[in-house]
Design a protein around this nucleic acid. Structure first.
Lengths: 337, 337
DNA sequence: CTGAAAGCGCTTACAG
DNA sequence: CTGAAAGCGCTTACAG
């Protein structure tokens, strides 16, 4: 059974299909009475306009493409929720694709977005390398990068002020009395990591503390390696009294590794993360971290994109502020340490 | 700058657009040499076929719609990852929508799917109430429910064998020596909760233990209320020696509430969950739970859907097995309890 | 093997 | 206010 088309309705209403089109579009150029009749018939027949047909003539699809590395990452999931909620309000649909950080997948995704003539693309927190960036810019549609900035006239970005937020967290740790603070970063060289490390370093310098390179470790942004890095840090003498993790996932692994080795957080060592994922409230102990307004950032990205799609201007870099969330994984260092 | 169309390529190749269409579709009805030339031009001009135009004539969109309550739920995220990975392999795109459990949102989502002429729909773990089910069945496209079964010729479903998995977990707990086992379910009456409760009950009976109604609490599937329920359970005398939570999120809250009250898990009381979310390995202590193969279930749902879209048959109920994962949140009850 | 023609379901000038 | 016509970019019988 095929879906009713505009023609079927025209026949039932005894008008031309042009009139039906206008009536359904709410045009003022049609007799209110006829319009009402048409709408009623459309309603009764369960008519649904074909987005494909419409987009063919209007050359707009009311669809945006969203690429994440993997939606199983809680950060990405929160962002996508924000994007989709906002998209829904603007009557856009979102096509979701996971790149799994595979270059061939990235290429395929962009190609599929192109074929579907998405009106814009949002790329969330992945490394946008040179090739990927090039593939992306060739799409000719507006692109918004989330937590990833790339200097290009085609790309806008929304991100948190990593440097400032990181520095604030560090000042808090230093204020607690910590002098030996380690940093577990991300070996993939995300911009956000670089910036957070920048804040870490600036805070150390600001406090007259030098950067001790042996206190800087690299993980992969996930618990497993966060734990390994933390374990290695524990072996150092003098041992750091606090560990600042690039993100909450890393911190989660650190917490586990430390606890498993019989040390207590924060009595023996403090741990802080970054993101304020949902699970930061349920870790043991609850994690001190920097909150990123993930949903709002997603919403902001969508809104920027819609503005761009409507041919409007938008500032190329939207920056939001982080917020220090103090929980129970941080405390002053032990007297004797 | 507009995208190149089949006509542009036809002009450049000095053939008709029909030939271009055939060549690009890999039809054998076209001279290999011409075909090669056409493909080369298409490549050079960065030609991308319009999915809209194609779907208009083929009446297939190569798109499927996925509705989740919220993608911020880790369970949903894992499932969606599985769906999208499989969809990618079959060259389908997925449109993602969050219903937020709002009826009006559900209606809007389905409407949008209809307008986009999705080839099929997957609905993940939400209550598919009577109205929603009706809205869904009217779409005329195949529907696959994940962790939600609904008797209807239009709907297929893939789900875990909740009853059996729940019973297995209970047997394990009983085998440990527990006699007073509480259950924290979900007040929204999901089918999965009903079935897990069924397994709980059957196991108790099977062991000659009666069902103590005061040991059965209801949460909302999230940590907060899981914690409240656990706290209430702790007040009971005699106190239960183990708590089986409907899902990991509930267990996470229970763990926190118990620990905050100065009791130790599993020394003072055992806790088990269901799902084996990523975070179950990082809770304190690591959670004993039942693993649901979430990604595989997503993949299975997509595969079932594709089969249905291709006009094939498929068994209406696909059931997968759960797997008991024993970690550190469960142990024999204390001697004196 | 190739092209001309029709048609998918819409929107939108154009003419009345 | 309304209709006939053209066209968006494809696929696919039909005829050669």
């Amino acid at each position: 059974m095929k879906r009713a088309s505009i023609k079927d309705i025209a026949r039932l209403a005894n008008v031309s299909h042009s009139t039906v089109s206008r009536a359904l579009a709410g045009s003022s150029l049609v007799n209110p009475e006829t319009a009402g009749k048409i709408r009623k018939i459309a309603e009764q027949t369960g008519y649904r306009p074909s987005a494909a047909a419409r987009s063919l003539v209007t050359s707009r699809s009311a669809t945006i493409g969203v690429v994440v590395t993997t939606i199983a990452d809680p950060f990405a999931a929160e962002v996508v929720l924000g994007i989709e909620d906002a998209a829904n309000e603007h009557n856009y649909s979102v096509i979701l694709a996971n790149s799994n950080a595979l270059p061939e997948r990235e290429v395929k995704v962009v190609r599929s977005f192109e074929e579907r003539r998405v009106d814009g693309i949002i790329v969330t927190s992945s490394r946008v390398g040179a090739t990927y960036a090039e593939t992306l810019s060739q799409t000719q549609v507006p692109i918004v990068l989330l937590n990833n900035q790339h200097p290009s006239e085609f790309m806008h970005s929304v991100m948190i002020d990593n440097f400032e937020a990181s520095r604030e967290l560090m000042r808090y740790l230093i204020g607690l009395g910590h002098r030996r603070i380690a940093y577990i970063g991300d070996r993939y060289g995300y911009q956000s990591d670089t910036e957070r490390f920048g804040g870490y370093r600036a805070a150390l310098e600001g406090a007259g503390l030098g950067l001790n390179k042996s206190y800087v470790m690299l993980g992969d942004g996930k618990p497993e390696e966060g734990g390994e890095a933390a374990a290695a840090l524990l072996e150092l003498r003098p041992r750091p009294t606090a560990i600042f993790c690039y993100n909450d996932m890393t911190a989660l692994g650190a917490l586990k590794a430390i606890t498993e080795r019989g040390l207590r957080v924060p009595a023996d060592i403090s741990v802080a993360g970054f993101d304020d994922l949902f699970l930061a409230r349920y870790s043991f102990p609850p994690l001190t971290t920097v909150r990123q307004p993930m949903r709002e950032m997603g919403r902001l990205a969508l809104e920027t994109l819609v503005q761009l799609c409507d041919g409007g201007e938008s500032q190329p870099f939207v920056q939001v502020a982080g917020e220090l969330i103090v929980r129970e994984s941080t405390a002053p260092p032990k007297e004797d340490s």
